[in-house]
Amino acid sequence: MAHQAEKAFIPLDIAVLTVSDTRTSETDTSGDLLAARVQESGHRLADRALVADDVYRLRAQVSQWIADPEVQVIVLTGGTGFSHRDSTPEAIAPLLDKQVEGFGELFRQISWQEIGSSTIQSRALAGLANGTLIFCLPGSTGACRTGWDKVIAEQLDSRHRPCNFVDTLIRARDQRRALP
């Protein structure tokens, strides 16, 4: 039986967006953690921003990145709860061409081990928009650590088997670059 050669790691261009009415660039521990994880994983931090929890500001920033062929993945932190200002799912869901239903389900299943029934208050979601993969995580640093370390990192690693998102993202980027 022939052994398949191990696939090479392919770095992706990832943007990080913090959604918060109270955090600043100096107090954004969740965004800091995600930016560090992106780079420690061998990917490139394409951009980073912090916006207020406002549907239209969120959509404007995310839409800009979705249209940019150099951004392959967007990871958002914050705005996924149930307070009156939490609006990340409402802002992002209409932009998605396809939802990755399993992401929110898996994130909550893993979170159950860490925070018990409080996990039902997470509206974490993911999907594809114009070939850009988008993950929406809660705003806590612990939730970002869980989401990245236990789900996202593997799905953005071209060596992960039996499947990952990398080939899909590479094809989509190449198609967007070819557009006039």
Rank of each mutant, 00 (worst) to 15 (best):
L106S: 10
S117L: 14
A8D: 14
F82V: 15
V51N: 06
I14W: 07
D54L: 03
Q64N: 10
C163I: 11
R123E: 12
A153C: 07
C136W: 06
G78Q: 02
M1Y: 04
R37I: 02
R44E: 09
L45E: 05
H160V: 10
A143Y: 02
F9H: 04
L12K: 05
G147V: 01
G131S: 12
E40W: 11
N164W: 06
S122K: 10
L95T: 10
H43S: 03
S20D: 01
S122F: 06
Q109K: 15
G79P: 05
S30A: 13
G78W: 01
R177M: 14
P180D: 09
E114D: 13
E40C: 10
G142S: 09
A15H: 06
P162N: 08
Y56V: 09
E40S: 15
T18K: 01
V38M: 04
L17I: 11
E114L: 11
I14Q: 03
I134C: 02
D149A: 07
E114C: 06
F135D: 00
A35Y: 01
S83K: 09
P11E: 14
V55T: 14
A178S: 14
S25C: 08
Q155P: 02
L169E: 03
D157C: 13
L12M: 06
W148T: 01
D86I: 09
A91E: 07
R176I: 11
F107R: 02
A36M: 13
I10M: 08
H160Y: 15
L96M: 13
A129K: 01
D68W: 02
